[in-house]
Structure formats: structure tokens, C-alpha cells
Design a protein around this nucleic acid. Structure first.
Lengths: 223, 223
DNA sequence: CCAATTCTATAGCGGGCGCTACGCAAAGTG
DNA sequence: CACTTTGCGTAGCGCCCGCTATAGAATTGG
């Protein structure tokens, strides 16, 4: 039935236009990117935009969804492929340093920065919920790691997850403020030094200092 | 000469109005706070605002300056009063957790969040420069601490300063995303665990896991 | 008192915002 | 071909933006 459309075919590629809208929103944020900016970036006129994507807010939601599945997918890959919580979050932070400073697209993270100072509550809330969902997944992974014995029993999974989230968000803003890839990678390495040492109990009452595994990463280097 | 004005006296308190403008900009950011929002918050009409403060941008600059000397002064106090680099930056992060979640004013840090996604380049740049100046002062303090022997000789002052800045900026956004004071204090404590341990060399050739001093803070707790 | 000075209030300027009505262009269907 | 369906382009809607012209109100100096 939908093998072929009835009327005049669309004169632009919808996915390409979506990608160009992504770049615009990524660079300037939701509110600051006007529909006029979007039509210019996408190479189409306003009625075409509205016909293909609904209104500005709906377009942004589609942009965010596509972003999460492409540029923002490194976190999910790290979680899927790394066996330990430390390995997953360390890789997430290190890859974020690369993505946030990749010269082929705007700096930082769209989900972190695009709805800051946004006067449309639904948009602000949608991205906030995504961030808090990510935080919850960090926590779940850390808790699972602790229960599996990778991390000391007293580890506060919620606090450690929030710490990683704060570093990630800080790295995004630092990237937008001009930090280099190397500088952000160093930040990621330092952040991983805050993780509980294998075999070192986290509570002050000092117990069960058994060996555990070795450090996964060398971590502290000069320069 | 200026003991008394010649004409009709101002009918509002300039400092009070400035404070109310600060709250508005702090909550919604530079761009999102309209002049109409400002006049409502300050309780004056537009011509009075322009006569007393110049234009919107000049008012914002005055707001930022006042903010830096009041709500944002905790960093300078920590630097002035704490004898060591670790003490200064640890206190800065801990006090930031309190300020960022103080219920008597908007959450987070105005200098960090108010010019994100701002289409006025001068405003965005002014706050970015302030942040980068703060980062440079972190680095100078850490470098001085390393030269004084507080920290291992190989310590990368720039990277450690940037790490602290990233945590601070991340804490600001987390506060705006709803994190509690207690949660942010835990983030600050964890961040301080990444600092080089006294007596432990920073270079990575994997040795010397000797005891070192006890941790400065217990850090990870349950709940 | 009157004149000069300074602040306040109303009302509105030009312009950009998100969005859309409308008529034409380009395709499929008989 | 005529007819329907759908996308495109122009042009412009109502609204809010930052900002200000103008006139009246409140004060000091003479």
C-alpha cells in the first residue's frame, strides 16, 4: 500500500535534514535555535519543515532521540561491552572526552547542554529526565558490580554514580569552554582515581582488605 | 557636591532592585530573562530600569560582578583561609554543595549556567573568561602546593585543576537537576579521593602500594 | 512663588519569533 | 487527457522582544 506515494515526492532527504537540525540544536541549544536558523541549516522552507517534522518541539524530540542512538550511544556500548562497572564507566568517560571534542561536530553533549536556560518546561524536563535516567543506570551498574564483588561492599553506588555524572557534565561544559581532547582525557583518568581501590575497604573501620583484582588502568601519570 | 540630588529622588532602592535582578538571571539565565521579566521582578518600569542600569547587558554585567562578590565569594574565602591546596579546593567543593542547593535562592551557579546557549557572544564570552580565570587560579594554587611539597612532585596541576573545575560545573548542573545538598557533598568528598595520596608517587610504573597516610575522609558510606 | 532638574508611567517603535493560509508545482490514477 | 494527492514557496499572521519618545510628578535652588 505505501509502496509509492500518491502526490509530489519530497525534494529533500529527511534524514539529512534531521542531521542538519541536530547540528544546529547541538551548537546553539533548543531555545536559541530559531525556526529561521533551522530552515537555513536544513536547506528547506518553513512549511516543509512543519510538514515533515511537526513543530519545533517535535523536531527537537526527534533530534534528541536520533542523537541518543548515534553520537550519544558510546555510553550504551561501554555498558554492553565492558565486563566490570569500573571498566564501563572509565571507558564512558574516556570516550566522552573524544566525542565532546570531535572537530566534525559541535562540542560537548547535546543532552547535557541544549536545554539549559530553556523557557519551555517540557523540553527542559525531557532532557533532565534523560540525564537522571542515565544517572540511575550508572548507579545500577555500580551496585551490580559491588554485589558481584568487583567493588568493596561498603561502596555508595548512588554517590559514585552521581560523581561520574557530574564529571561527565563538567567535561561537556569544559569542552564548550575550549578544553582539548587531551585535557579532557586527563580529567577522565583523574576521576577514575576516586574509585575505591581494589582490596581497600571503603568504610573507615578497616576490614576485609583481601587482595581483589589489580588496578584496571594505570591511572595516575604525570603530564 | 553629591550630598543631595537636585531633582526627584529615585523611588526604589537600587541595591534591592539589583538583587532581584540577580535572582531572575540566576534562575532563568541571561537570554531567557526578558526585560519584562526583570521589571516585574524588580518592581519598576522599563524606563526606570534603563535609567538606573543602562541596558540589559550592562545590568547583567553588574549582576555578575555583585554575584561574584557575594554568593560566589566562597571560593576566594577558601583560597584565602585554607593553608593547603587540597584544603582550599576541598573546602571550595564542599561549600559549593551547600550554596548550590541553598533554598533561599536559585540552584546551581550563575556564572556557570546563566550564559549557556546564549546568542549574545559578549555575554557568553564574559562568563567563559571568568570560568577559565577561576580554572587558572585553581591551577596556580595546586602548582604552588606541589612546589611547597604538599603534593607529589609529578602532580599535573593543570589537569587536577581542570578536574576540580569539571566537578564544580557538574555539581552546578546536578543541583539544577534536583540533587540534594547531601548528595552533592558526597560528590565533593569522592572527588577529593582522586587527589594524589601523600607519600604515594604519581608516576605509574606500578609499585610502592605502601600504606601511606589514612584517607582524609571516610568518603563512601551506605545509603 | 517659579524655574530647573530628575525620576516615573504610558504607550508604542522596529524587528524577530513560532507558525500557517494560500496558490502553484509535481507526482500518481483513471 | 482530467483529477486527486501531496510538497513547495511566498507572504504574512499575532505576539513578544529590547528599547525609547513623551509627558507628567516630585524634588531642589532661587
Amino acid at each position: 500500500m505505501t509502496t509509492r506515494q500518491r502526490g509530489r515526492p519530497r525534494s529533500f532527504d529527511r534524514l539529512t535534514a534531521l542531521e542538519q537540525a541536530t547540528m544546529a540544536f547541538w551548537e546553539h541549544g533548543y531555545e536559541t535555535t530559531s525556526v529561521s536558523d533551522l530552515t537555513r541549516a536544513m536547506g528547506i522552507s518553513a512549511p516543509s519543515l512543519y510538514a515533515a517534522f511537526g513543530d519545533k518541539r517535535t523536531l527537537f524530540e526527534e533530534v534528541v532521540e536520533a542523537y541518543a542512538g548515534s553520537y550519544g550511544a558510546y555510553g550504551g556500548r561501554a555498558f554492553a561491552e565492558e565486563p566490570t562497572a569500573r571498566g564501563a564507566l572509565g571507558r564512558l568517560l574516556r570516550e566522552a572526552a573524544d566525542v565532546f571534542t570531535d572537530p566534525s561536530h559541535p562540542r560537548g553533549c547535546l543532552m547535557i547542554s541544549a536545554a539549559v536556560n530553556c523557557s519551555t518546561p517540557e523540553v527542559e524536563e525531557a532532557l533532565r529526565e534523560r540525564r537522571n535516567r542515565n544517572l540511575a543506570s550508572f548507579e545500577a551498574r555500580i551496585r551490580a558490580g559491588a554485589e558481584a564483588g568487583e567493588l568493596p561492599a561498603g561502596t555508595d553506588a548512588g554517590a559514585l554514580a552521581r560523581f561520574c555524572g557530574a564529571v561527565l557534565q563538567g567535561m561537556s561544559q569544559q569542552a564548550r569552554d575550549g578544553a582539548t581532547r587531551t585535557e579532557l582525557e586527563a580529567v577522565a583518568e583523574i576521576a577514575m582515581l576516586a574509585w575505591p581501590q581494589a582490596g581497600v575497604p571503603v568504610a573507615a573501620t578497616g576490614k576485609a582488605p583481601e587482595a581483589g583484582k589489580a588496578r584496571e588502568t594505570p591511572a595516575g601519570r604525570g603530564a
